[in-house]
Simulated scan of single mutants.
Amino acid sequence: MFKSILVAVDGSEIGHRALEEALSVARAMGISVHAVHVVQTATYPSLTLNELEPPAIAQQALLDALDREADEILAGAEEKATTAGVSLTVHKRWGHPGAEIIALAQELGADLTVIGSHGKGRLGRFFLGSTSTYVVDHATSTVMVVRGEPDAS
């Protein structure tokens, strides 16, 4: 029996399906869920801000946009949880998604981590596919990988 669930959400269709699975398990067991969105800063290695350089303005704009997107994704997760009648706590992290998901699962004592098999588009599939693999390989508790619909191509 699970006592605590962590679900990774990224705004993709498969991320929505992972959230729905986590909420379904939580509702059946009468437990709450934690949702995490990790802003993948490793994709943007030059995001170290130096206020004396003009690129810092563009970098800050990108950081702000990523932060707003994360907030929107987490707000959507809260709405779905409310509709499902499940208590949900949201977490926003910055860094390597796999490492941040594993770290948060350990901090929370989550005994089930739910993650989508891949993320947005082909590029996202590469990154989040590697994230789901990382989580499966490094988790200290049960991991549920939710698969998406097969590609039509």
Rank of each mutant, 00 (worst) to 15 (best):
V38P: 10
I5R: 00
D71C: 08
V146C: 04
S87E: 12
L47Y: 04
V38A: 11
A35S: 08
G109F: 02
G148K: 03
A65M: 12
R122A: 15
A26Q: 00
V39P: 01
H37G: 02
S32Q: 08
E107I: 09
G15L: 03
R68A: 14
G119Y: 02
G121T: 12
E79Q: 10
G95Y: 07
T82S: 12
K120T: 10
H16A: 11
E78F: 12
G109Q: 00
R93F: 06
S46A: 09
F127D: 02
D10C: 06
T43H: 08
I102Q: 14
T140L: 07
I5M: 01
S4V: 11
I102G: 13
V146R: 07
S141C: 10
T133P: 05
K80W: 10
L63P: 02
S117V: 05
G124K: 08
T82W: 10
A84W: 04
A152N: 13
V143K: 03
A28N: 11
A152F: 10
F126S: 11
V7M: 01
Y134I: 04
G30A: 03
I5N: 01
T142D: 05
V36Y: 09
T83W: 00
A75D: 15
R125W: 05
K92E: 02
P55F: 09
A26R: 01
R147L: 10
A103Q: 15
V114G: 00
Q40P: 15
Q59I: 09
R68V: 14
S24H: 15
S153Q: 13
S117Y: 02
H34P: 01
S132T: 10
G30E: 03
A8G: 10
H118Q: 10
M144C: 11
A139M: 02
A65R: 12
E72I: 14
R122C: 09
E78V: 13
E20V: 13
F126W: 15
E20A: 15
G121C: 06
A139Y: 07
K80D: 15
G95R: 03
A8I: 08
E13V: 15
Y134K: 03
I57H: 14
M1T: 15
G85D: 07
P150I: 00
A61M: 13
E78C: 08
P45T: 04
E149C: 14
L47M: 02
N50S: 11
P150M: 00
R147E: 05
G129W: 07
R68Y: 13
K92S: 05
I5T: 01
I73Q: 01
A56W: 06
L19I: 09
V36W: 05
G109M: 04
E13L: 15
S141P: 02
V38Y: 02
H118I: 06
K3G: 14
P55M: 09
P150V: 00
L47V: 09
S132Q: 06
K120V: 09
D64Y: 13
H37C: 04
T142R: 08
H138S: 05
G124W: 03
R93W: 10
I14R: 05
R68Q: 07
G95S: 06
I14D: 10
I31A: 03
V145L: 01
G98S: 14
H91F: 08
G15T: 00
L49T: 08
A81V: 01
D64K: 05
Y134N: 07
